[in-house]
Amino acid sequence: MNNKKPVLAFSALCAAAVVAVGGYLYHAKQRLPPAGGSAASAVTAPEPTATAALPAAPAASTLATALPPTDSADAAAHPPAAAPAATPTRPAPTVASASSATGRLFFRHTGMDEHYGQLAWREAARGGEAHFVAHLRCEVAHVSGGRGMCLTAERGVVTTYSAKLFDATTFAVTAELPLQGIPSRTRVSRDGRLAAYTVFAAGHGYTSLDFATRTVILDTATGRELLELENLAITKDGQPFKAKDFNFWGVTFTPDGKNFFATLSSGGQHYLLRGDIARRSATVLHDNVECPSVSPDATRVAYKKRYVVDGRIVWQFHVLDLKTLVETPLAEKRNVDDQIEWLDDAHVLYALASDSAAASTDVWTAPIDGKGAPSLYLRNAYSPATERFPKPAP
């Protein structure tokens, strides 16, 4: 009987210990955040931060001193050597502007890190985590209708260029073709069936007098060339228009994919073309238009307009109403060499050289009514593309 007392005492002690540990675990569990709570916020993008308003737009007489001496496209065209790929995602760059856009926003990452030059995207245009596509390092890119185009440069003893068509869901490359020149512009139609690109066959910028371009529209499913703009039948003021010095660039597709707008340069003038793909023809609509971009509702075209200030070429953004042909200058008064992307029907996106690094750019936004002030939209980004799809049939 006496031998049973120590056993009973030990059993009681064990039971008490189990109760104590269970109580501790219960209270510890109550202090942990639920799934998807504050613990997940550690890997989400930072909250948008306010951006100081820009100074008032300068008058035309002060334009020369107000504009920066270099173009954002020149800085973006010469990236540093590629670094080894790292993790596929990281916190997104800072967004500092509101909008009504809801689709994915694609862009070329220009932060000075291992992702420099990679295609990147965000689930929503205003926020969310940035994702990187390690096998797509682009000089310029565009995505629409579930398809994308990435113009690449392989730098070595001899630099080579190519265009890669890809599926915007899996990012698998579906076609690749060599480019005979330095990548400049690219666009994909809203339905994803067509893509266009412009390369410099000679020269490397639109400010020189001796540059030459090649601009092509192709089938995204096969990579097959459908139309080279040099072969268009063009009319101006109701008459055939043809010259040996024609150069074309900056294609933008209408929402139905049947027509396009582009720039035609000849004799020192820059014209807005409206083209018909099936007819292989185009008509001059307006003058002093470069790198047009048609609005989502197809009623307006945004573009850069060329000026010469103190012997230097500068560009200023305008929006043209296609029905009235009335121009509206935008509030952005800095010199921007870029093809505008429409964020929505009331705002546009474009890239400017960053203050933080010579080869980096940031994306800015401005309202198309010419009021207000531009604001910083996305840091460390270039070549923005707002994902769009065809409207469903009624």
Rank of each mutant, 00 (worst) to 15 (best):
F10L: 13
L165R: 11
R214W: 02
A163F: 06
L105Y: 08
Y303L: 03
S100M: 10
R190I: 07
P240I: 05
G181F: 10
T207A: 10
D362P: 01
Q30G: 01
R31L: 00
E123P: 07
D113I: 11
G145F: 09
D167C: 02
A346W: 06
H347R: 13
A201E: 11
T62Q: 15
G22I: 07
K4C: 05
F200C: 00
V43D: 11
P34R: 04
E228M: 05
A130K: 07
I234E: 06
H131W: 05
T44S: 14
V21S: 04
E154P: 01
V301M: 00
A20Y: 09
A82D: 12
R155C: 03
R155G: 00
A221C: 04
L285D: 03
G311H: 09
R126N: 15
H115K: 13
Q180P: 05
T215Y: 05
A57S: 02
K244V: 10
V133G: 00
W121V: 02
P79Q: 08
C14G: 00
A359N: 12
G275Y: 07
T220Y: 11
P390F: 05
F261V: 07
V43I: 14
Y161C: 04
L273E: 02
A175R: 15
S61Y: 11
E154D: 14
N259F: 09
G117W: 11
R90Q: 13
D219I: 05
S184T: 06
K164N: 11
Q339P: 01
D297T: 08
Y350N: 00
V309D: 15
P394L: 12
C291Q: 14
P46K: 14
L25W: 07
P367N: 05
L25F: 11
A12V: 12
V284R: 03
A381I: 08
C14E: 01
F253S: 02
L8F: 07
A28T: 01
A56N: 10
H286N: 05
F260E: 00
A35V: 11
A358F: 08
A124V: 12
Y382S: 03
A243T: 15
A346S: 15
A172T: 12
A53E: 10
N2R: 15
F132A: 06
P255A: 10
G146Q: 07
R224P: 00
A202S: 14
L378S: 02
G181H: 08
K371G: 10
T324H: 11
L285I: 15
I277T: 03
F106G: 01
R379C: 01
M1I: 10
A81T: 14
S97D: 04
P329D: 03
R300H: 14
I313Q: 13
V7K: 13
R90V: 09
H109P: 02
L227E: 03
P80A: 03
T159A: 09
Y197E: 02
E139S: 05
T186A: 15
S295R: 08
G36S: 01
V18L: 14
F261W: 12
P240C: 06
T49D: 12
D256N: 10
H286R: 09
P84A: 09
A77K: 06
V284N: 09
V199K: 02
T299R: 15
M112N: 15
Q339I: 02
L378C: 03
P390H: 10
P88W: 12
A351K: 05
A17G: 14
D219M: 07
E228Y: 03
T365L: 00
A124I: 10
W121S: 08
A39M: 09
